[in-house]
Design a protein around this nucleic acid. Structure first.
Lengths: 224, 224
DNA sequence: CGCGCTTCTGAGCCTTTTCTGAGATCTCCG
DNA sequence: CGGAGATCTCAGAAAAGGCTCAGAAGCGCG
């Protein structure tokens, strides 16, 4: 499980209750924490008072139109990333939405996968590189070359340590033979035991259990 | 002088020379300053060293594929906003592009107006004229070129010191590679170690913790 | 012109990382 | 159990990366 403390928070403003419900479920499954509003007025209130990482705003809303809601948020210096959803897909609509302050504009009907991908792209910008590979209970921060422990503590890795751990983490539970790791992470001319040494370094920094040895075959992570 | 004269800089990586020419003209008319590359290798070099506000990368490129180029930039801690252009418009392509690190994905053929609007959405944040940038516990006063410490004490920065700190402060928590800082803040002909020297100056004035070194990658602020 | 501030260079020193290799320890299997 | 091979541990040398700073050159101002 992901740590409940740091779930990215999403404000969803959508008047179609059925669609809103489906989206909320979809997003919850992806590990987001959702607040929902069904009209622009309520959306404005939540947007001004809540702390969100991303907002999804339907363009057509009762009480207060989606674009007007967006403009008012921007006027009040709310800089949260906003993805506008809309059935209006004409060029002028898209341009108008973006220029009203939207960071992205997705036309209905859309595919769930694309919404999720665009959402990831938007939240990535604010977290500025909390792009991570799961690492058992911890995570590997790919931008900063750090391991983030469950408590939030960060351990920085050197270049080679990082490359090795990333290679392992790219396919958790797979068994990575020494020879493969050696050619992928180190220069061809290095000694045979370089992988052992760096596994030792990783274990010294992160604990004995991060990397498991499979005798005669190689190394493995992601098995508890 | 205020930086009103500074045009936003765009890196355009597109192998179709005809399209590249048209885009360059279009963007120039909109007030952007363009660097163009016609293959991935050249794009990588410019992207790693140039000071850009946005990059437009075609997905299909000779020598080095667009997505691979993007991945390599991201791997080197380049966090500039990237818009990927592609003739590949299938769902899996769009999702793949976004997850490779693109901030937006536009399918060819596209309308010029939409490209411009999405470009505005991407570069909007960097051009915003705030008065102060947060700097951990302190703040950077953009008007006076001063750092305001928590107790209210003010420390005046020289021109270069200010430019360097502002560049760092525009993206707190992001890692700024030396090469990027060097091209953004200093003249191209300056020595390799100029960034180190100015980081040293900043630390001498503001304390050791303002700027964090990430060994092998660059500098970072905004981390306690 | 002289003064103080700023910018830049480069050399020397310090720290971190990378790699080697050798002895200790473990695992498998007969 | 015992031995061969695999794996672990770690010290230390070499290289890479980073820090510090003195001094030269440039700029603006009185």
């Amino acid at each position: 499980m992901h740590d409940g403390a740091n779930k990215p928070r999403v404000l969803l403003v959508e008047d179609d209750r059925e669609l809103a419900g489906m989206l909320a479920e979809l997003l919850a499954d992806e590990g987001y924490e959702i607040d929902a509003a069904h009209d622009g007025q309520r959306g404005l209130h939540l947007g001004l008072t809540g702390r969100y990482d991303v907002m999804i705003i339907d363009r057509r809303l009762p009480v207060l139109d989606g674009l007007e809601l967006l403009r008012r948020l921007r006027a009040r210096a709310v800089t949260t990333r906003v993805l506008v959803l809309s059935a209006l897909g004409e060029l002028a609509d898209r341009v108008g939405g973006l220029d009203a302050g939207a960071d992205d504009y997705l036309v209905k009907p859309f595919e769930a996968e694309e919404l999720l991908a665009r959402l990831r792209a938007l939240s990535r910008r604010d977290l500025e590189g909390a792009e991570c590979l799961p690492l058992g209970a911890a995570a590997l921060d790919l931008r900063r070359h750090e391991v983030v422990l469950p408590r939030g503590e960060r351990i920085t890795l050197s270049g080679r340590e990082f490359e090795l751990l990333r290679t392992l983490a790219q396919r958790p539970k797979a068994i990575h033979p020494r020879a493969v790791l050696r050619t992928r992470v180190f220069a061809d001319s290095t000694g045979e035991s370089i992988v052992d040494t760096y596994v030792y370094y990783l274990r010294r920094k992160l604990g004995r259990d991060v990397v498991r040895t499979v005798h005669g075959l190689g190394y493995q992570i992601g098995v508890v």
